[in-house]
Design a protein around this nucleic acid. Structure first.
Lengths: 147, 147
DNA sequence: GCTTGTGTAACTATTATAGTTACATTACGA
DNA sequence: TCGTAATGTAACTATAATAGTTACACAAGC
């Protein structure tokens, strides 16, 4: 089981918006970079828009970042595209047998651990800013170009 | 998107094996506690068996833990039931456009972050032992019983 | 050898994702 | 103001994973 690629695509899209901020980034143009269908991009841009990370408007070509790249963390993006619900990375079987000591206590015993594991993962994402990704792409490109 | 409940069920099963170590834990008995089908339990027991966490044998009724409860971490269980492949909690869209600076660098830029986030989550699981879960169930039961 | 339980294949239903077509709606420029 | 171009979104498809279920082969032990 893997997490939706919406997250990776969203990071891709936002990086592109920053690196091509002079250009007009239509969903078709972005889709070409991601190598997918423009509608997929529009769906993700819609989610990023609702989260306040980008500016997009019906009828107006192109999207733009709505915050500084240094002010967007990967956790912001992760939450925006609803990759995982609150406390729902792990799923627990419901309706264990209440007549069994294990059955009636397992959920409460497991839940704090699952929650802590998910939080640890999300905290790692919170430490990375979109600017880190963008800078990495910029420097890789620069060193490739000079070789 | 949530992680397979196989993980939670596996923890349930192993806890039950410990708490009912005097009894004969057939797949049917366990299934009754989990409230599912015995075949689901056998599938999971098969995975735990391959990982060396339990003893089960064809034809012989019941399974037993193959290690001390203090010697089994939740990470061991998580790996045993193949909840998530190595470095594959997050998925990255393949085939981004190599003619685009973002497209040809995004995967390499994202991968270390995703890997770190997954590792942070798994590390949290590694810190919790099966005995912690079992003890929690035991004490909850005891305090419930006395009230 | 009969009974019981495990191992596993095969099938179903359910759910999520990703891709695609189609079309309504909006903005803007000629 | 009309036409073009882009976004928003519904609807449909294909694919994949999960969980549940039936069925049956195989192993062990009385």
């Amino acid at each position: 089981m893997t997490i939706s690629s919406r997250f990776a695509v969203a990071i891709h899209v936002l990086s592109l918006l920053e690196l091509n901020k002079e250009g007009v980034n239509t969903s078709e143009y972005i889709a070409d970079s991601v190598n997918t269908n423009p509608v997929v991009i529009r769906r993700i841009l819609g989610m990023l828009n609702k989260a306040g990370l980008v500016q997009v408007r019906p009828g107006v070509a192109g999207s733009k970042l709505n915050r500084l790249v240094t002010e967007i963390t990967l956790l912001d993006i992760y939450r925006a595209v609803q990759v995982v619900e609150e406390d729902a990375l792990f799923s627990v079987h419901d309706k264990p047998n209440p007549h069994c000591p294990v059955g009636r206590n397992i959920q409460a015993s497991i839940e704090p651990v699952f929650s802590a594991a998910q939080t640890a993962m999300e905290h790692t994402l919170e430490l990375v800013k979109l600017s880190d990704i963008v800078d990495n792409i910029r420097t890789t490109e620069a060193s490739c170009g000079s070789s």
